[in-house]
Design a binder for these strands. Structure first.
Lengths: 167, 167
DNA sequence: AAGCAACTGAGACTCAGTCTCAACTTGCAC
DNA sequence: GTGCAAGTTGAGACTGAGTCTCAGTTGCTT
């Protein structure tokens, strides 16, 4: 379970080499940090964490490196709620989608093979060649429902998430 | 098929009244415009169209009215690709999801009852009370595939859409 | 017709993300 | 190991969608 990030770093280096790009100290540090975060994160959060650790990396480099990581397949960009981008590292091939609680902001990940199959079938019917998909289901999680939370209108989600995410 | 927007205007007025809000000339003009657009649109596009017609409405009012329309259920906010918000008016209860071609930027709408049922089942299993969902499948449409378009990496989608949408 | 709460426009502001460019690394070639 | 071209970096200016403020205006209830 708790494995080192060396494998990911090696894969990233391979990718960079293939593209004629270089593995720098900054990129290495970012990869190490990203693979120590076992949850969704934002670009600015990453920037902040690096600063906290005393590793000076500029905003531009963070964004540039995230772009490379997404291209290399090591990191995925996800939409949570209706907000800006979030990222998550890819471990193995565990594609999943998200249930997002509009009351507490919590995110439940799920994976469903039948859902995947059904989407493939829909694409086939429309002669569409899929490469990627993105499904968010908004609503209220069990514990919030017990606390009597009413489902929110979808448009409130964004506000809620922003409130939660900013310091 | 071609019906007037009076029904929608009446529904909007009802909603406003319930909330102690007012139906103004600006709001009326925006509703009329929105229900004459039979496709997805952006807030700035709407602003531009109003200007073109010589109806002076500020950016703030456009955003404020869209928010009210989303709350009232007359307009839906959708994500297309990984870009900023798009909107579409709601006619009847035709919920649908989107196949988005990363080559030409085209959007194919689809609705699938089984997909809806399956999502409800997944939510039930997780004791999650859904209110709304959002599914985009990115890939290449039939005609682009015939033209030999390769599926793009997901991260390119955004760039492509931006290029296409701006004048 | 009056009064007041709600609404509007102009433009300042915010915030995520992008771009520029001079100075600095990396890594390959010798 | 040294040289050096190509790639990379940081600082900060910039962009663009969306929000906020506030003084002046308008819709609606009485």
């Amino acid at each position: 379970m708790a494995h080192s990030v060396d494998r990911e770093l090696a894969r990233f280096q391979d990718f960079l080499q293939q593209q004629g790009l270089k593995l720098t100290a900054e990129r290495t540090a970012l990869v190490r940090e990203i693979f120590s975060i076992h949850y969704h994160f934002e670009a600015d959060e990453l920037l902040f964490k690096m600063k906290e650790k005393g590793v000076k990396i500029s905003r531009a480099t963070v964004y540039r490196t995230l772009e490379l990581l997404v291209k290399s397949g090591l990191v995925r960009r996800v939409h949570l709620g209706e907000d800006h981008y979030h990222y998550e590292h890819v471990s193995g091939n565990s594609h999943h989608d998200h249930l997002i609680c509009t009351a507490c902001g919590g995110v439940i990940e799920f994976h469903d093979e039948e859902l995947e199959r059904l989407q493939m079938a829909i694409c086939a019917k429309k002669k569409f060649t899929p490469t990627f998909h993105n499904l968010q289901i908004l609503g209220v999680c069990d514990s919030c429902r017990r606390k009597g939370q009413q489902p929110d209108a979808p448009d409130r989600v964004r506000m809620i998430q922003q409130t939660r995410l900013r310091k």
